[in-house]
Design a protein around this nucleic acid. Sequence first.
DNA 1: GTCGCCGCTACCCGGTTGGGTAGAACCGCG
DNA 2: CGCGGTTCTACCCAACCGGGTAGCGGCGAC
Lengths: 211, 211
Amino acid sequence: MKTTIRVAVVEDSRTTREALAAIIDLEPDLECVAACGSGEEALKYLPKLKPEVVLMDIQLPGVSGIDCVVQLKQQLPEVLIIMVTVYEDPIRIFSALRAGASGYLLKRSEPEEVVSAIRDVHQGRGAMSGEVALKVIHYFSEQKEQSEELETLTRRETEVLELVAFGLSNKEAAARLNVSVEAVRWHLKKIYSKLHVRSRTEAAIKFRNRG
Amino acid sequence: MKTTIRVAVVEDSRTTREALAAIIDLEPDLECVAACGSGEEALKYLPKLKPEVVLMDIQLPGVSGIDCVVQLKQQLPEVLIIMVTVYEDPIRIFSALRAGASGYLLKRSEPEEVVSAIRDVHQGRGAMSGEVALKVIHYFSEQKEQSEELETLTRRETEVLELVAFGLSNKEAAARLNVSVEAVRWHLKKIYSKLHVRSRTEAAIKFRNRG
DNA sequence: GTCGCCGCTACCCGGTTGGGTAGAACCGCG
DNA sequence: CGCGGTTCTACCCAACCGGGTAGCGGCGAC
């Protein structure tokens, strides 16, 4: 490799931002070409600076990191983005990956992990903290189980769930099925235990997420 | 037209079934070739009788009308199916249409409406009771409004809704956002009024149904 | 500045929900 | 026939939810 990998950092915390920039510049094959403190700044400068890899904080004031990813990708389709964040919850992880991020690191990652993540995505590989990878795998294994779980429901239970997943209360569902509220509650209890959930909303989500 | 349109009826109530058969046979251009009392019966005989149009009740004991539609369509891809039902709710209407039904009548429809629906679908047109058409239109107009409604939410409200739509309780969402349960409840109240819903599940559905 | 909107906290109240437990009618299977 | 599974009803209880109302600090628009 003759040239260095051009990297940019987008992160509102100044200390974290400068720490990341320092880590990058310490590597002979990496070069930090920009360190932005906000999404707006990133959208203004990065299209011209054309970095190859961007380390992006997910929680930014104003334009969120995820919105920023979407817009950056429009202007620089080739850019590779690694989210760097304290959040471990599946919602944010998936929002980021769906927006087009190639990697997902936690802020408590070691410097070596950061630089190797940059090299990884630059070579077309994905980059993920072990903890994040675990969440993702767990999430998908849950997804696979979901349809299986739904198949354990009886005909009547499915009918009840269908109504609940449409937003009806127990009372409304009971009226629709011409049974007592108690019958609906009874089925719902069994549905919860079969689907391993604890509320109607969770059950509704599982039902609606089926193939 | 030289030949008559071959029609079959699938309906568990004997009186309704015979009434429909009678209405059909009264028409010179229609012929009732079968009147089944269950989905099982329909699946057994109809593939051999090859009716062109089937009037199908949605609520059948055992194999539901919708399941019956799916299986019948596999064996007789050309068959045209009109659902005849007391149910007006969008869930069933859409399940039926998705399963491959060409028409949807309410049981309180007039005989003339039934026979003209049969002729309509036979000529490649759709057939729907006015009330059903209204529901469908209303449903889609609601869909269009949904994203507009979601856009009236503030940043924070959207954050709350995101968590609720993920199945979290108010308590859990509060912990996630580092605020009191009251703050979550407060936002939720405003969310409900903006989205015109009355429960977290309905709100979750609207949120998840967005583009 | 003042007004309006946002975000947060707090309290009350009634209704709903979720969990536990129990019993009865029905139906198909072995 | 008895057994298991499904469906339905019923009651108790604690927790949660949805609606109303009130107040306070902040921030941007006019």
